[in-house]
Design a protein around this nucleic acid. Structure first.
Lengths: 223, 223
DNA sequence: CAATAATTTATTATCGATAATTTGAATTTT
DNA sequence: AAAATTCAAATTATCGATAATAAATTATTG
């Protein structure tokens, strides 16, 4: 789920904190917990059969991720994004992704670029299947994987971390763009980006990226 | 201390969690806790006369801020930044601050720009005093205030939040640049940025910014 | 009846204790 | 003596209970 920590070492016992975090996240993304609603510690403790402590820590994690907001002594609520929040998010996301494309083109040698191209092509292939199937959830995951792969190729982990935070792909699935045609179009826009990168055409790549992300935002804003 | 939450509402009782967070942060910045050293929950609980719970939550906060790293069941250590980490941090910081300058110049009307200019001039004045006194701690605060003021003027809170996270001003004070001359020079470079912004000279402002931040990084790298 | 004060309820923040896990030393085995 | 094993100490993760706080409700007063 999280783009940042792919390698989870084996452990005997599961961390409740992680389970709780995932459970609450799931509740948010599934719509069970809607923006602005309260996240009551004792409720989730009872619900998941744990005590309050781990729930508090899980909430702390979610807050760092920007999914919820906590006010001392008052409690936690699912974050409610204003239109401006969304715009700001996307605008910063474009800024970071543009940098990653510029850096990738500037820093990678031909072999590395070929490899990146290959990775991206693979992702786009899967993305196409998702589009055909109309599987929005899987589609957004591939979408995230695409952009993350570019950033990862630059080796700049700070960039990856910050991008992950302003990436609201997680919220995106509430969007109305669920029809197959729209998804296909989105997949195509990625192909343009990929092609431009592979021929080291920085200006085009960034331009296609901006169009792509902007159209994502527009889709969200119509909600 | 934190650039993000200026308004702290009045509360009867203090949050231990916050006190603990500040105490540990202070220990890190003062050098008492060096990079790579362990942050033992029970130690700080005893040290501050609290229980373990709030300490864990405080550590969670510090982790979100990137000051420490936690591995489940193993514990927490003060984050050890590699040279590459520092470079990546600064490179992203330049990216975000460049955007903030571009946005400020593009979005603010004359009156708003005048107001920003005024604010920045005030900060620079204080910064000069800090340089003369050789007060590095206060100087870095003014430095942060300068850049934060520009970002804040764009009204993009996402940008501000992410910038705060990749801003390693907090680590900067370990740097060797403690002599008055260097601080004065740094203050001057801010004046160039300010001047360029006030005449809406985007290219120069960004260029000065890059020079400034790069020189900060170089200073850090010599450590 | 409105406005304020007192009270109850719901919830968060913290505590002290215990279970689970890792680490490192002591012990045994080869 | 080196390697593997067992054990003990240190530390983390969790629990159940209590104290503090905020919100909601009821009671009181003018």
């Amino acid at each position: 789920m999280n783009t940042l920590d792919p390698a989870t070492p084996t452990r005997r016992r599961q961390l409740f904190r992680e389970d709780i975090r995932n459970a609450i996240r799931e509740a948010i993304f599934s719509g069970e917990l809607r923006p602005g609603e309260r996240v009551v510690e004792t409720y989730w403790a009872k619900e998941l059969g744990t005590s309050q402590g781990p729930v508090r820590e899980a909430i702390c994690d979610l807050e760092a991720q920007g999914l919820v907001e906590t006010v001392p002594f008052k409690g936690t609520r699912v974050r409610q994004l204003t239109k401006k929040d969304v715009q700001d998010n996307y605008s910063v996301r474009i800024c970071l992704e543009s940098k990653s494309i510029r850096d990738a083109i500037a820093l990678l040698d031909n072999e590395q670029l070929r490899q990146l191209t290959e990775t991206l092509a693979g992702i786009l292939s899967e993305m196409y299947d998702c589009a055909i199937r109309g599987d929005l959830q899987a589609f957004t995951n591939q979408d995230a994987a695409f952009h993350a792969a570019i950033i990862r190729s630059t080796g700049n982990m700070v960039l990856l971390k910050l991008w992950d935070q302003c990436n609201i792909r997680n919220w995106f699935m509430f969007s109305v763009m669920t029809d197959v045609e729209t998804l296909k179009q989105l997949q195509e826009s990625h192909q343009h980006i990929l092609a431009a990168i592979s021929r080291r055409d920085e200006a085009s790549a960034v331009s296609y990226l901006e169009d792509h992300v902007t159209s994502l935002m527009d889709g969200y804003m119509q909600t």
